[in-house]
Structure formats: C-alpha cells, structure tokens
C-alpha cells in the first residue's frame, strides 16, 4: 500500500515575465510532503520560498511542472474546484493576517466553514474549539482591533486550522511574536501535523525550521540541499 502524499511538486516552475525580462521565481522544484510530515523551507529573500507556498496552496499556478494536493493535479481544477480545495483541505497561516475587522474573533474563524456550507451554529462550535486550542476562548467575542498583535496572530492560526485541514501551509507564522509566544504557534502546527496533516513551513529562522521533520534549502528558485528525514519517530514515543 502506498501513501498518497498530501502535497507533491513535480518540476514546479514559476516564471514571471518573458524573454530577457523573465524572472525565474521557482525552477524545477520537486517536493513530496507525506501525511504526518512537517517540511520546512528555508532560503534568503527572493529564493522562491513564498512562491513555492502560493503554488502549493493553489493561489498561483505553475508555469510548468505540476502541483498535486492529495494526488489531485491542481492544473486540472477549474476556479470553483480550486476554491473548494482551498476552503476544505488547505489551511494557510500567512504573514498578512487578513482578519476581517467587522467580524469578531469567533466569526473570523467560523467564516471559512460557513462559506463551505457548514451550518452557522456548527461552524461557531468548531470555531470556538479552535480558539480554545490557541488559548483565546475568552476573547472569542472581541474584534481584531481589541486584540494584541499576538492574539490576532493566534486568531489567524485558529482560522487556518479550523475543521479538517489535511495540508497546512505557513509563511513565517510566528511573525513578530516574542520567542515564547512564537513557540506556541509552532506547537500548534506541530500537533496538527502529528495528528496526520501534512505541513509546509516557510521561514528564514533556523530555530523555527528545526521543528520540522525535514528542512529543504532553496536558493535562486532551486532546491540546493536538505537535511533528510528525521532519524526516528521519537516524537510520539516521548509524549
């Protein structure tokens, strides 16, 4: 029995512009992320790591090559199919939090579920649970501007992880958080992955990348090295 990767990039290439003005953001990247695996992508600014994440989440299309989520080639999906995939299977934690200021924390978290047709009351229950997971249950009725930067970040994470997300994509998710708060974000990401999701964590901080099972290094749009798989499944044993 073979395990279907949660995410697979096959020779994924993204080029902006053409001819001599062409900018190669990503050049022929191969990457496989299995269920229960967290892969960190490190590289300097401009190395292509954010491009990789936008391709993985179907927010942008590869110029050539293929991106597959749970074995489904994204190039074969129409706009509706992609939108559904983004709502159901993929959770994003981006640097830009994108919380809606007119909605409370719990409404922000419930929104993707409601858009996906979950009944409002059920969505709210799930959203509240997700907020409790990030220790914000007591702030559920507050609006984003009534929350600290760190709390807003955690709301965004709860929104990314609410429901069943089989692929979690995070771009510098600890943002400007202090090191201890940032760590709770990584704990959440890690626990979601340990529960069976696949995760990609883009970061330029080695300390955060070290939470991953595997670290891939990008330079000028190309994978130049990786740390290899984690030595042993000691995580579970240690709990």
């Amino acid at each position: 029995m073979t395990v279907v990767p949660v995410l697979e990039l096959r020779g994924a290439t993204r080029t902006h512009g053409t001819g001599e003005h062409a900018v190669h953001a990503l050049r022929g990247v191969d990457l496989v992320v299995l269920p229960g695996e967290l892969v960190a992508v490190m590289g300097a600014s401009g190395s292509g790591k954010s491009t990789l994440l936008t391709l993985a989440g179907g927010l942008d299309a590869a110029t050539s090559g293929e991106v597959l989520v749970e074995g489904v080639p994204l190039s074969g999906l129409d706009a509706g199919g992609l939108a559904q995939l983004r709502r159901r299977a993929v959770g994003y934690v981006f640097q830009d939090l994108n919380l809606l200021p007119a909605l409370t924390a719990v409404e922000n978290v419930a929104l993707p579920l409601e858009l996906d047709g979950v009944r409002a009351r059920d969505a709210r229950v799930l959203a509240l649970r997700a907020l409790e997971e990030v220790e914000l249950g007591s702030e559920a009725r507050r609006f984003p501007d009534q929350l600290s930067g760190g709390q807003q970040q955690r709301v965004a994470i709860a929104r990314a992880l609410v429901g069943v997300r089989r692929l979690v994509l995070a771009d510098e998710p600890t943002g400007a958080l202090d090191s201890v708060t940032g760590e709770t974000v990584l704990e959440l990401l890690r626990s979601r992955v340990d529960a069976g999701a696949g995760g990609v964590l883009v970061t330029h901080e080695a300390r955060h990348a070290a939470w991953a099972d595997r670290v891939v290094f990008l330079r000028d749009g190309v994978v130049v090295d990786e740390t290899g798989a984690a030595p042993a499944p000691s995580f579970e044993a240690a709990r």
Partner: peptide, 21 residues
Amino acid sequence: LQRQRTATVRALQAHTRRRRA
C-alpha cells in the same frame, strides 16, 4: 557554507526534538 548550514540545522532539529521530549 551550505554544507555547514545543513549540518547545523540538523543539529538544531536534534536539540529541538530532545527539548520537546
């Protein structure tokens, strides 16, 4: 540089795993 970076990140992963355990 890259060889060392990979090795050091690998060591970081090991410290992080031990710490989480």
